[in-house]
Simulated scan of single mutants.
Amino acid sequence: MTVFVDPSVWAAHGTLFSHLVSDSSLDELHAFADRVGLSRRAFDLDHYDVAAERYDATIAAGAVPVGGRELARRLEASGLRVPGRARRDAKADALLVRWDVLMPDARSVGVELVDRWHEPHRVYHGPEHLVHALDCLALLEGRPPGVPDGAPPPHHDGASSLTQLAIWFHDAVHDGVARRDEERSAALATTLLEPFLPPSDVHEVARLVLVTTDHSPADDDAPGALVSDADLAILAAAPDRYARYVRQVRAEYSSVPDETFRAGRASVLRGLLGSGALYRTEPAVVRWEHAARANLTVELAGLAD
Rank of each mutant, 00 (worst) to 15 (best):
V256K: 06
V249S: 01
L226D: 13
G271K: 10
D219E: 14
V249T: 13
L269D: 10
L232R: 01
T213F: 07
L273Q: 05
L235Y: 15
A266T: 03
G271E: 12
I234M: 14
A225S: 15
A243V: 13
L226H: 03
L272A: 04
A233E: 14
D229S: 08
E259R: 00
S255G: 08
P257E: 01
V268K: 02
A263M: 06
S275Y: 05
A251W: 10
R265V: 00
D231S: 08
V268M: 02
Y245E: 08
A237D: 15
A243I: 02
A266W: 00
E252F: 06
A225G: 12
P257M: 04
F261V: 07
A251S: 09
F261M: 10
Q248F: 08
L269H: 02
A263N: 08
R241F: 07
D219P: 07
P217L: 06
F261C: 03
S254V: 11
A233T: 02
L272Q: 05
A238S: 06
A266V: 01
A218M: 06
F261K: 02
A233F: 09
V268T: 10
R265T: 04
A263P: 03
V268S: 06
S275C: 12
G264E: 03
Y242T: 05
D229F: 05
T213V: 04
R262E: 02
G274D: 04
V249M: 14
D258A: 13
G274P: 14
S275F: 03
R241V: 15
L273Y: 08
D258F: 01
L269F: 14
